[in-house]
């Protein structure tokens, strides 16, 4: 028990299209705010979550019928766990992209996604499970003063 009665695990499901992904990302952020996650930290989570989900839409389901994305969230006192499931294609080589540093002077128009995720997430794990992908993100939260 973490003592936060209003905190409950929740799941958001949507189809892997850009517009439905936007709604899904907003919905997760709204629910985290309602469960008491600070606005600034929710912003970090929203940025990382959007990059991870956009990658699923653009890569895991590229060239195939967009399937479901399921986002499971568990907000605890000292961390937030987000698990993203999809039924699309595996990561290239079965591994997480490295997220190479950005060279601003080259004026890149992409390649920011994994760099941002790695800056904002404390622990990342990827598993290929049967015909699907599971990406787990853990965000550490500063301990809050006791009420």
């Amino acid at each position: 028990m973490n003592g936060d009665a209003n905190r409950q695990d929740f799941v958001v499901r949507f189809r892997a299209t850009e517009l439905e992904a936007r709604e899904g990302i907003c919905s997760v952020a709204e629910r985290l705010i309602r469960q008491g996650l600070a606005a600034e930290r929710t912003g970090d989570v929203e940025i990382a979550l959007a990059e991870a989900i956009n990658n699923v839409v653009e890569h895991a389901y590229s060239g195939i019928e967009p399937g479901q994305i399921q986002v499971c969230c568990r907000l605890l006192a000292d961390n937030l766990e987000i698990r993203i499931h999809d039924r699309g294609k595996p990561m290239p080589d079965g591994n997480l992209p490295s997220g190479d540093p950005i060279v601003p002077a080259d004026l890149p128009e992409g390649g920011f996604g994994w760099f941002l995720i790695r800056q904002l997430v404390n622990e990342i794990e990827y598993q290929r499970l049967g015909q699907g992908n599971l990406l787990s993100l853990r965000f550490d939260l500063p301990s809050r003063p006791k009420a």
């Binding site: 912003g43 950005i102 601003p104 760099f115």
Partner: peptide, 16 residues
Amino acid sequence: TPMVDKVFRLTRMDTV
């Protein structure tokens, strides 16, 4: 705004 500013700073695209 704060989140937009953060994305520019994290990627260092605020330098260009």
